[in-house]
Amino acid sequence: MILRIALALFAVPIAGGLLAGMDRIITARMQRRKGPPLLQPFYDVIKLLQKEATTVNMITRFFTTFSLCFTILAVVLLFTGQDLLLCIFAFTLACVFFVIMGYSGYSPYSFIGAERELIQIMCYEPMILIAAFAFYEVSGSFHVEVVWKLDQPLITRLPLIFLGLMFILTIKLRKSPFDLSMSHHGHQEIVKGITTELTGVCLAMVEITHWFEIIFSLALVYIFFVSSAAYMQVLAVFICLAVYFLEIVIDNVFARVKWKNALKISWIVTGVASLANFVILGLL
């Protein structure tokens, strides 16, 4: 238990940061650039932490901290094998704090970014919930623990739900075409969106939160592929990496969509994938 908590607290941000670093290198190579060193995200955060703290108001930083704390809590709960729905609820709470942080900034950019972030949550949340429901339906429990005891990984029973989850992960990770609320590149019409008003420590916290988010999202993928077989447990990690690579490719291939389309597409995908998969489950 303590080992797992330690894993969640220390290994996860490192892994998340490394993934973010890899992301930047791969993206750069796709654009025929060299790209920054692998550890660049860590350098960035360290630099941000050393900056003089300025803020537009006195409450924004509270929400940033809250968001980080509850994201960490969600990851800890997930890694210790707790109820999957509880993890998702904690995660949603963190996301809500993040949105409120954006609202509290109150410049047009962060305000609109917050609204868009909220729409992005509305796009992906149903699918995440349904994925958890499907997990319960197949494994008979909400406890994440049971996936390590399954004879066959969930993907064999829930292929369509997994595809739906893949789709919304792009939205969750704010990858193009769904980087509506903030983009990692400062070329957006709303500047840096929800994080426009953040500097220094607050921005560093948002970065770290994002590392945790990456791992949380990939852990959901992991759950679909892991089983009691040892080789699956290793293979699932590589599948997660492959999924993340796919996300990077998608990020670089697509142009940003309008929020209306994002909402419609994601809800249609969620509805069709989940309904079809549940019907198939019922028939089997």
Binding site: V99, E115, L118, I121
Partner: peptide, 20 residues
Amino acid sequence: VIIVAFASTITMFFWTKWLG
């Protein structure tokens, strides 16, 4: 089950924007 997933999300949406 699917209705609940969507409805919960929409519920979250309209409360959060008020909160914001």
